[in-house]
Design a protein around this nucleic acid. Structure first.
Lengths: 246, 246
DNA sequence: AATTAAATATGTAATTTCTACACATTGTTT
DNA sequence: AAACAATGTGTAGAAATTACATATTTAATT
């Protein structure tokens, strides 16, 4: 945050009185946000993409992004993109990483801040009709514009790590869900198979699941119990976790 | 990464042929990097700070930072700052978070990307004489310029989490270290007291410590064995860790 | 109505990891 | 030689993880 040009080493340098003048001379770069919007449907982790509108990326898929406005906080910009594209507010949104490779954008230097957001596909109407807005399989989607495949990979890694430490996954499920749905979610995101019995044991022992007394409907087998996640209890209990392990 | 002004909804929009023209119209912001340089000495976690050279922050402490140059990658910028200030290269450096509050800089909007870096104070001569460059206690240092206290907090949280999952701590120690030094490091960073016997057991069971056959010198008690960390073995063994827990 | 199929629901034993603690060893200092 | 201080090691109980089997409930089938 500081740099004194032409300040001879060792010489006592005067303080800078006018900070605005200093900043005026700083190089400026175009700054954007890109949202990696994760959803969950048909037991697959999905990501929301749109067709690129750049000629050089014709036919390729692109994240939902936009330029950051003057004096706009990055979080605000990300929420704005989300609101504009999905109509949703109050969803989970998290800054993950900033990408700055000088040639990542064919139009010249553009730095972008990647946000991950998780939302329940069912709660969501793809109301915006411009371009083609689609859910894609996170692991298999190819033909991405820019460095967006790399951005998705980074955010997907972040997601895999985070859902093991925080109850983020519930943002991808309906408010009431069966244990099978929960397990499917974890298996899809972590890309592993888990033992059903141990999975249930683990979640019940954490004691954040509330039995709603209701059952699944419209399933062609024995309906499972529906649960809600007790966010209030979780918030109160947040424990500090010490466990060196690598 | 895309936004079409004045595109009537539903209307088929033409592809953009000239990406450079598009980017030309993007708003631009001053972009800096700030390095949170952690060190370890006298069993305390330290952070390297310099006096702010802004009049409004007279007497306050500031992180080591600089503007990002044209077409410069952020990682490169952070390494450059580190090199310029400490003369060190090949040290651990990691992007942690980007801070963008519109009024975080008194000179106007400046977005900064925070990097954390860990280095061994002994390997390091504070050769740069301009301003006052000092190591400060991470948890107690106050009177910080800008939002640098918040940036340090964020990076410190990142560090606490990371040293439990990755062998980063060894970058803060001499190449050969005693188990007591290692434990002191963990206790200082995590701000807890650990059981000596269980700590040793844990590290030995991970099996990444190489007994050098050498012993501490110049200690006024029974010298402890000196170990090295087996980075090569660690790299080969990186295990994928599945453990849902919150 | 009885049978089959499929998924839910639950229990238990063996293993591993974590935790709390006690004692012997080695080198320094008095 | 004795006292001291820190290193080095072991063990028993608790807790968490893992692997695996059987009963239950509902829908679909005969």
């Amino acid at each position: 945050m500081k740099n004194l040009k032409n300040a001879p080493a060792g010489e006592k340098t005067a303080l800078i009185g006018n900070a605005a003048l200093l900043v005026q001379d700083y190089p400026r770069v175009p700054l954007t946000v890109d949202c990696v919007i994760f959803g969950f449907e048909e037991n697959k982790l999905k990501v929301l993409l749109i067709r690129s509108d750049l000629e050089v990326y014709k036919g390729k898929w692109s994240l939902l992004g936009d330029v950051v406005h003057e004096n706009e906080d990055l979080d605000d910009a990300a929420y704005r993109v989300l609101q504009e594209r999905t109509g949703m507010t109050n969803v989970y949104l998290k800054q993950v990483h900033t990408f700055s490779s000088p040639h990542r954008h064919p139009g010249g230097r553009v730095v972008t801040v990647a946000y991950a957001s998780l939302l329940n596909i069912k709660h969501h109407e793809l109301c915006i009709t411009e371009n083609e807005l689609h859910w894609h399989n996170v692991r298999t989607v190819r033909d991405m514009a820019f460095d967006h495949r790399e951005i998705i990979d980074t955010c997907y890694n972040w997601l895999q790590k985070s859902i093991q430490e925080h109850p983020l996954g519930f943002n991808l499920l309906p408010e009431k869900f069966s244990l099978r749905e929960l397990q499917n979610l974890y298996e899809a995101i972590l890309n592993v198979e888990l033992d059903r019995r141990n999975f249930r044991k683990k979640f019940f022992s954490m004691d954040f699941l509330i039995d709603t007394g209701e059952f699944e409907e419209d399933v062609k087998h024995r309906p499972g119990k529906l649960y809600r996640f007790d966010f209030a209890k979780y918030e109160k209990s947040k424990r500090k976790w010490i466990g060196i392990d690598f």
